[in-house]
């Protein structure tokens, strides 16, 4: 294991974006691990929920972005309800996912393509959130 290089400000812009999207402050966390202890999906995670926050606190955004964990998170909000520091970890996970989705490639959904893709059974909300995720 190599020595971790901590450069908290290296990814400041990206980190700031994540904190803005989620509206959460990772500094509130005091690493009690209650999120991990209660997480039903923790067995399939390579880094544990409380480590996600710790890595974000340390500015190690790449480790979080490249992890399996953010895709294993089921957004069940167990961590959110139980966190004694009022941090919405589920939101933070979603924010990390969003930054990845947004940055990869160009717009994968154009407004002109939408009419052809509409399924009458599809809820409107899904279209909106699809736009949010796949359109830059």
């Amino acid at each position: 294991m190599g020595r971790m290089k901590i450069i908290p400000d290296a990814k400041k812009k990206e980190l700031q974006q994540i904190l803005e999207i989620s509206g959460e402050n990772v500094k509130d966390c005091m690493q009690c691990g209650k999120c991990t202890a209660g997480c039903p999906a923790s067995s399939s995670m390579d880094i544990l929920p409380h480590q996600v926050i710790r890595l974000l606190q340390l500015g190690q955004l790449d480790k979080v972005a490249n992890s399996q964990t953010i895709w294993s998170c089921a957004s069940c909000f167990t961590c959110t309800t139980r966190c004694p520091r009022n941090i919405d970890l589920a939101k933070l996970m979603e924010a990390v996912r969003l930054t990845i989705i947004r940055s990869k490639g160009s717009s994968r959904l154009k407004a002109d393509d939408v009419p052809g893709k509409i399924d009458p059974k599809m809820p409107q909300q899904a279209i909106v959130s699809g736009f949010r995720k796949y359109n830059k």
Partner: peptide, 25 residues
């Protein structure tokens, strides 16, 4: 670390916790 949940199971209490130092649940 903290305890996430305590499940009553039989006459036992199943305690789900984490050791944050070793990152083991």
């Amino acid at each position: 670390g903290m305890v996430g949940k305590v499940f009553p199971e039989g006459d036992k209490l199943q305690v789900h916790g984490v050791d944050a130092l070793s990152s083991e649940t």
